[in-house]
Amino acid sequence: MNIFRLTGDLSHLAAIIILLLKIWKTRSCAGISGKSQILFALVFTTRYLDLLTSFISLYNTSMKFIYIGCAYATVYMIYAKFKATYDGNHDTFRVEFLVVPIGGLAFLVNHDFSPLEILWTFSIYLESVAILPQLFMISKTGEAETITTHYLFFLGLYRALYLMNWIWRFYFEGFFDMIAIVAGVVQTILYCDFFYLYVTKVLKGKKLSLPA
């Protein structure tokens, strides 16, 4: 464990909690892409199946349960509890165009052709594009609530911190995982446009609205 990975995990946890609290407190999921949240639940489910097979640490296991629990709670609140506030008309990204090719890619490019490893690879690839429905929805509605931009900021920051974690681990441990690194770079690049708007607008107290 290193400082980049720890702050990355905490940033990820902050994002997940911010979103959960936003929906719970405002009793509304307006502006939130349910499709992205379903993809994140799928990412955690396929990545954390090793909860059943191997124990790494109390931290690792507890964080996995928290992530999975929050992800499903968020999906439940969007599609069941606060379904009336779900903006389905703007959440129209064709996720099948993501899931199917990524499923194929996971079969072709992986570290080991075993079920758990292929599911882990699928999860890594899927996570890198899982935010697209959310970014697409914001581009369609033309704006985002400020709390939603904070959610996206911490979510994007977490993988950027993981990139630093992988540099650290390569330098100090000689560890590197090309699949995770390439997917992590793609994932972080997808946030660059948002990061620019977040820093130039939201941090200056303005509302995030598109086109700029």
């Binding site: 090793d50 882990w120 000689g174 995982d177």
Partner: peptide
Amino acid sequence: SAPPLRHDEL
């Protein structure tokens, strides 16, 4: 080095 198949990251 080949990555460990036991993934220790979240």
